[in-house]
Every structure is written in structure tokens, then in C-alpha cells.
Amino acid sequence: MAVIEVQNLIKAFKGDQVVKGLNFTLEKGKCVALLGPNGAGKTTTLRMLSGLLKPTDGSIHFEGATKGEDIRQYIGYLPQYPIFHPWMTGKEFLVYVGQLAHLSKKDAIEKADQLLEKVAIFEARNQRIGKYSGGMKQRLGIAQAMIHSPQLLMLDEPVSSLDPLGRREVLTLMEELKQQTTILFSTHILGDAEEISDDLLVMHHGEIVEAGSIESLRHKHQTAKFELAFQGDTTTYQERLKQLECIQETFLEKGEIHVIVEDIETARREILKEAIATDWPLVKFELSRTTLEDLFMKVVKN
């Protein structure tokens, strides 16, 4: 079931289209990464979904919301650089925004305590936010986004600005939150997307260039490629490989021959047959899978 359905979403600033007609749906319970290089339009997209920016065109439909209803109650949002009232304590802020999200004071206090515990800043709950470290603010930011148990949690670059320790903590936290709600988070770091998301939306120049589950994208973009390394002069073997019928293309990289083939099974048989027949001094024979990194680079470069 879809939580949110986006159709032809466009945002233009002074005639300049930053987001150029997005179409996608988010499935309930999924953790989706909005992946793209800086300037791809990720933040603008999230801000439109959260209601902070008005779309120039297109529609955002929230499942279960009637037309014209305030969809902000269903959404939790963490901006890239969350700013709080520095004079408030962490707990005061959570109770404040909890009440703004229609919780009673009692419920807001209860929920604030739970979340403070969960994001591991319970000890610092009565300290002024002005004294919090970057990682603590980020975690408080996640807590404030979760305070009203939203159906969709949107996080804008939740880990990009954190040190490795803070990054690990927030990723673990997101792993946990995945069980409770649908998450859409943006990142320009592929590793983060790969680690916790089920689905990817790859954005570039304001458009979604790839979408799907991580597995399906890997599969789709996998090229059949072998990497071979030899003892002695490698180039002579490249010539001989080129003569094999099953091989499309070869190139040398770092002293290894990369062989692009049509069909993995046939190519493996053919190459190995040839290798045994003419006694090649092979030191490496490897079927390489394209990583998502390759995919990301490929998609972004095109």
C-alpha cells in the first residue's frame, strides 16, 4: 500500500526548474533513500513533501488524507540543519512541538521521555539545547520528528554532518525506526543508502533517474565482466582474448584485463578452456559485480 503518491512534482525558482516533474510512490513500511549528488534537488523535494515549499506544479497525495486536509499531522520532518530554540531544554522542546502536534500535555511529556530515551539523550534532557553537540541536536531532531508518531518520517541528510560515531548511532536508530514507520531520507552517500534502505530513488538534475529496490537495481545494472591478471606480460593475452567469440570488449586497467562478455556461463567456459589449452599463467580470474557505486557514478555521469 502506498503512503504517499507524487505526480509530476515540479518546483521552479524564478523560472529555473530545480525539480522537474517527479513521479513516485512510497510503499508503507519501506525505508527509502533519496540518493543523489549535491544540488540534485533532494532537499527541495523533501521540503515540498513536508509543506515548507509550495510545488510549482504537480500533486502530492497522502494516503488516507481527504482533499484539502492538513497533511502535516501525518508527517515528521527533520531538516538538514535543524535549528532549535537554544534557550529551551531538550525535553521542553519535545513537549512543545508534541503539543503543537495535538498531543495533550500529559501525552507529550510521556512521549518526550520515551523518545529521549530512545535517541539516547535522556541524560541531557534538562540541559539547554544551546549546549548540545551536533550529534545530540541531530538525535533531538529525529525525536521531534517522531513525537506525533507520523506515518511518514522524512529526514534530510540525517547523517551527513556527523562524525563516524554519531553517524553510526543515527543509522542504528534509523534501523530501529524502520520497524515503526515509513522512512524517506535523503543522502549523497551511497554507503548509507545501501546500508539501511530497502528502496532507492536516484535523483540527478531534478529528475529521478533510477528507482527500485537495491537488489533489482544491482541486477539491472550488473554487467557481466571478468577481471584477469597474469604473471608476466599481460598484453599478449589481451590479444588472444579478443579473438574469442564470446567476448565483447576488453580493456586494461591497473595491469588487469577487464573483459566484458555477453553471457557469463559461456564466457567462463570458453575463457577457461582456452586458458587450460594454452597453459596461461593466471593469477586472478574473477567475476566482478558492479557495485552500486558504479551504478551511482554511471547514472550521475549520464
Partner: peptide, 13 residues
């Protein structure tokens, strides 16, 4: 200006 409004006004206020 500071950006607090970004947190406050995404709540249903």
C-alpha cells in the same frame, strides 16, 4: 531567519 520555523511550521499549527 534562524530556521526554527522550519521545525515549528511543519507541525500541524
Amino acid at each position: 531567519k534562524s530556521g526554527v520555523a522550519e521545525l515549528i511550521l511543519v507541525k500541524p499549527v
